[in-house]
Nucleic acid binder design. Structure first.
Lengths: 216, 216
DNA sequence: GCAAATCCTGACCGATTGATCAAGATGCGC
DNA sequence: GCGCATCTTGATCAATCGGTCAGGATTTGC
């Protein structure tokens, strides 16, 4: 039964050195272009140019612009969700929140395009990930909100509406990727170094930890 | 010398009831479309359709897409800058910061498209407002940062890097416009009512005021 | 009420869009 | 090194893009 020849779609997904290298190049370029121009504003020609491949070659690996976009999104959504696992039962509230903030800001520094693509999707009205938001993310937020509530009931942190706490954390960490251009412009810097992000992390952590009545 | 007929450009800027009404319709539609699709992704046809005017009519009032975009931006940039005036010497730190947060969140509720357009510009790399950021905004931030510093030196608020405090405030207030779609999806709500924004305002205000060692 | 200025719009333009295809080039299993 | 699968690419497609224009309709100033 282990057929020698599989279906077309599966074959296209099979390893193959050339394939993997080209797909990686295209995905990376696509993430950058989609993140700065949005889905409608991005052109497959621009992506192909940045990836260093002819346009028909891009369509050889990804049939449609939509398929390419969804492939890029998959990667981004995964990382976004995974980061929330820093908040888990048994962790010390101040520790867990600090770790989550640190991890989110680290993502903003190392992979800013991912954060920007997420933001771009939201600005566009989340037309491609509505189901994901109403499914996986909603469950995740419900679960983590319940955890925060237990901390509050146990008197370990000050009362707060968990969802809004998350909104603040998400916004204030992702801003270090999404609004990096504004930061460099306003501060008159050529680029943002590690110290800069560390200061951001410390500022936000202090506000949250002190704000929730915790001591560091 | 007060010529009866002025230059073409000035005449085009003259009042006129029909003109004002149509320009307003187009600007409003343009703000919405640019905010969700970005400059490159927005089509003049889509803007004209939403505004309820034929496409050539749109080009009658705004020669180019670029000119229309800049007209929309003007409006947005002005509001963004004005809000910062809540932070002024002589104000009580807790009061001033609370007011600024409240005003910014109020903007996010009442005029979300403006905030989204600002965010869209940043994601695109601020290609149209780089000069504005490095000029007016940089001055403004320097001025307000100096004010924060005086509060710190006077022992009225805990030490903090002013710029990063601003980054947190900007992000956590604008997120109520930029990421509203995510919020409705995650919380399973059809729309976000006034109570929702008030809770957000209170959450953020508490975090900042407590976080900076102030009592409410 | 009559000009002149303003406003409106169908038709149209070249450029760019996402996507396709045939045919050739290259890589790889055996 | 043969043969098949994979990869590459120039040429090309219809659709949409931003923008123009002529000329008719309407408003406005006097």
């Amino acid at each position: 039964m282990a057929a020698k020849t599989r279906k077309r779609q599966e074959m296209l997904a099979r390893p193959g050195l050339i394939r993997r290298r080209n797909v990686a190049k295209i995905l990376k370029a696509a993430e950058t272009v989609f993140a700065s121009k949005g889905f409608s504003g991005a052109s497959t020609a621009a992506i192909a140019r940045l990836a260093g491949v002819p346009k028909p070659n891009l369509h050889y690996y990804f049939r449609t612009k939509q398929a390419l976009y969804e492939a890029v999104l998959d990667h981004v959504l995964g990382m976004w969700v995974d980061a929330m696992e820093e908040l888990h039962p048994g962790a010390d509230p101040a520790d867990a929140l600090s770790r989550y903030v640190a991890r989110k800001i680290d993502l903003s520094r190392r992979l800013p395009a991912a954060s920007r693509l997420w933001a771009m999707e939201m600005l566009a009205g989340a037309p491609h990930i509505g189901g994901f938001l109403r499914g996986r993310v909603r469950e995740l937020v419900a679960e983590k909100s319940a955890l925060i509530e237990t901390w509050i009931e146990a008197g370990r942190i000050a009362p707060v509406v968990p969802a809004h706490l998350f909104f603040v954390i998400w916004a204030a960490t992702q801003t270090y990727a999404d609004f990096a251009v504004q930061m460099t412009a306003v501060l008159n810097r050529k680029s943002l170094d590690a110290d800069f992000y560390d200061t951001g992390r410390d500022t936000l952590t202090t506000l949250i930890v002190n704000g929730l009545g915790l001591k560091r």
